[in-house]
Design a protein around this nucleic acid. Structure first.
Lengths: 210, 210, 210, 210
DNA sequence: TATGAATGAGGTTTCATTCAT
DNA sequence: TATGAATGAAACCTCATTCAT
């Protein structure tokens, strides 16, 4: 236990705290984790958390906001408008999937945990999640538009594709954890391959009709 | 609050409790929800929960088990071995998706919550989830096998397809909630249509190269 | 679990219950033991205890009363007025000590437990204990009186001797439990012998003066 | 209730708590007393007890340990090896008896309660009691050895004398409480006198035959 | 600024006791 | 009579939050 903590600029301290909080919340869950744990993980004392963030709830939403920002940044950087459309979609999805796989903590806090905690978070947390979802939708739109800008899928269908991507990435990351011998890359190859199999079967007449 | 004690056989009461618990846990989350809330929702007093289920933890695992049973049942009933394979897969997925859409509470407890709660549940809850995932994998295998029984995809790829289906269903159900003008059926049509678009774009040369 | 219990006369049932209660209370203590445990030990259902004894507290005092009765009986039977005084005292103490050693449960409930439980019992329990103490005092008086009835020790000193006997018997029974190779008889021999040593040392000049 | 927080160093607060706990436990018994009562008696709030001592059980064992320490200290200080043996024994017993009489609460917690509480305490509490009993046994040995160190009574007999002393002191203290006109000193005089009467009667032929 | 000390509020759990058959 | 079903009350314990240095 450090007896007297260094005076650090507010910004740095706050980042330390949120880093620690993301780590702790993602491992134990919002309710199971105590503010004490977060403070310890950040190497500071409990009242500091309150001085800087005000409350446990605000600490949690701060985590959500920051991780949402990171996520939006990653997705945005992945979409290069110049690229041929389909290629853009696939490389975007790849980047998105790798982010989820490489940032379990962020993702767990942002997507898995934020949904399941009751009332107090619905609003702010919902907004943060929406930003991420919108960005991914935008990525889908960009990736499925013709060079001239003409859209191939409607806005609504783009949203649906985005949701499928999000859900699949979430679910597949669980699978990755259970199969340490696979990597994000090998998994992506498998998914791509599965898509091709589907296409081929369709072309040979096995229509996926209802 | 029932004014006079309602004397019911043990079996009935227990089902009432688990029904209420699934409802409450799915809305508030395991930790946020109190046993008191569950008791109230079941129209009984708190000690009854303990007399019948023993502890909050056991109450939760009872929910998981029962919902897992229901889910397995639904999926199993949806797969008709005689059907032509692709058709079997799609109708199975349709049934699965409709179950998720129609049983938000069950699904939230089983899929969203069961993953994020830490240590005390790892074992029993994990097993229950696995049963459901295995069943869906089996459905995928059945739906992608030729009439003779020859497999089109490997076991591993079937698992991946199952996870994609699970994650997509989970994620899309959120979308359905935000778009009340859509129905599970219309959503499935959209997804089917998107698949067709993908196939066509592939056939015309826009390869989703790795 | 016997489905329907035999109809037994009230007296018998009540004795069954108190027997069980003495057993259970002496092992677990008044508060740790539950009415349920007592009912089970008696082979009946909980409400029966209430129908017969009214409350846990009354059940406990019933135990105290009955065990006090037994104890008084034992001590009273041990004192034979005709005997030469000292002999009467020693044989009485012997009987008393053997009772304590042979009836751990009764003694634990009556002497050890009854003292340490707070308020609700002070009165009735105190009275029951007093009856036992009085009887032992009477024994001491009888044992230290000359055949003509003349007293050797005052009433007050007789009370003191009685208390010493009680406390010593209580404490020595613990020692007996820790030394299974000894028996009540061998212990009494040792105590007698110690008294003789004391007398001899006094006679040879080592006064136990203050 | 102290209106403003009283900020005391940990050590002082901890002693306050244990003081209060000894008081409360000795009056109400371990199970009857609530942690709330202890906190109130210590002038603090309930959570403090948990912050400092961890649990009701640990609070109780802390009481046992501290009182055992005090008792051992008192007995050890009372035995002066130089003294003539019998005198040493009697003055030691006098000190021991006065401690019991003057520290009803300590004694009740240490001796009466520690015996009757079941499982959770068996180990640590049993060890603490043993330390006290051993110390008193040592006192008896010292008080019954000749100046040269030769023993008059065997180890086993010393243990028995120690138990008699303990039980008698315990029991007589009850008697003292019921006779406020007596004092520890006057009681000791009575006991001494009774011993003399016994010796004399023995010398005149009333043998306490086995 | 930074923190050890302190507490209010609330959650899980148990159990003596009663009701209704 | 005898008992399974049900509950009110209270206990232990935790934790977000604040106070005072």
């Amino acid at each position: 236990m450090v007896s007297k903590q260094q005076r650090l600029p507010r910004e740095v301290r706050e980042r330390q705290m949120i880093d620690a909080a993301v780590r702790v919340f993602s491992r134990s869950g919002y309710h199971t984790a105590s503010v004490e744990e977060v403070a310890e993980a950040a190497g500071i004392s409990k009242p500091m958390v309150y001085i800087y963030l005000g409350s446990k709830e605000r600490l949690f939403t701060a985590c959500i906001h920051r991780e949402a920002d990171r996520m939006v940044e990653v997705v945005r950087a992945a979409v290069h408008p110049g690229e041929p459309p389909e290629l853009g979609l696939w490389s975007g999805l790849r980047v998105f999937f790798c982010f989820v796989a490489d940032n379990r903590d962020s993702w767990a806090v942002l997507y898995q945990h934020a949904r399941t905690q009751g009332e107090p978070f619905s609003k702010e947390v919902g907004a943060a999640r929406s930003r991420v979802i919108d960005e991914i939708t935008r990525m889908v739109v960009a990736g499925t538009s013709l060079p001239g800008g003409e859209r191939i899928v409607s806005q609504r269908d783009a949203e649906i594709l985005a949701r499928i991507a999000i859900g699949a990435a979430d679910s597949l990351t669980d699978w990755l954890l259970e199969h340490p011998e696979e990597s994000p890359e090998s998994l992506i190859d498998r998914v791509t391959n599965l898509a091709l199999i589907g296409v081929e079967r369709y072309n040979t007449g096995d229509v996926p009709s209802a």
